[in-house]
Design a protein around this nucleic acid. Sequence first.
DNA 1: TTGACATGAAACCAAAAGGTGTTATATTAT
DNA 2: ATAATATAACACCTTTTGGTTTCATGTCAA
Lengths: 120, 120
Amino acid sequence: MSLSVEKHDVFQAIADPTRRKILQLLVEKDLPISEITLNFSMSRTAVVKHLHILSDAGLVHGQKIGREKIYHLQAKPLVEVKQWLSYYEQFWNNKLSILKHVVENDGVSGITRIEKEPDK
Amino acid sequence: MSLSVEKHDVFQAIADPTRRKILQLLVEKDLPISEITLNFSMSRTAVVKHLHILSDAGLVHGQKIGREKIYHLQAKPLVEVKQWLSYYEQFWNNKLSILKHVVENDGVSGITRIEKEPDK
DNA sequence: TTGACATGAAACCAAAAGGTGTTATATTAT
DNA sequence: ATAATATAACACCTTTTGGTTTCATGTCAA
């Protein structure tokens, strides 16, 4: 009953290009299913399925108004992805962070020549 | 032939929990396939398939040393996800950013009561 | 009230995903 | 040389995905 039942995983929800495009469309403004569908070359039914997946992940919310169902973007669940990413950020930012992490965790293999190797 | 042929999409690569766990394992240290497999209850062949997908996305790199193939984490491709996310960050950070965006893009529907509503 | 519109819901389908097991090959330790 | 190890390469299987079409239902406008 809570706001985040999330039957579908956020990571899986954003994995599909079509769904990412839907999110992008909803950034500009809320849209009914029919208008969302206009932006794709697939059937309305297919779009609806994507909307359901996005909805299950908590990324959009559809509200029925009259005969239309207006979808609205809800970006909050993306925080989970953001947090997951932030953990890995140190591994592409600079090699010193990697060294630090390796030393702290006694990992050794693979880190052969760290010496120089200019950033990037 | 370039370093980023990326047959597989990064978004799709990180969508699977098993693959995310593999990345996590490789954070600590480089590992051969056999050792990676020890962490899962699936066959080595299945793990190898996940490694291929991660490799196609540029997230790991396997180097054959002797009879072992040592896999190494390469976080850089995650930057793409980070950038994609940063675009949406404004929509969960504070409502003022949303208002700003809406005004700039003439989107109107859906933004009903922005007035107060304390940050978070 | 009647037709057009917007969505809901169901049945169906091909292809991709995620697994399995078997067999072959290269490498290392004895 | 030989056995054990580590991986590669297949063939095969089941479930999930992403899509389709068809039909039913609720709502709005004339």
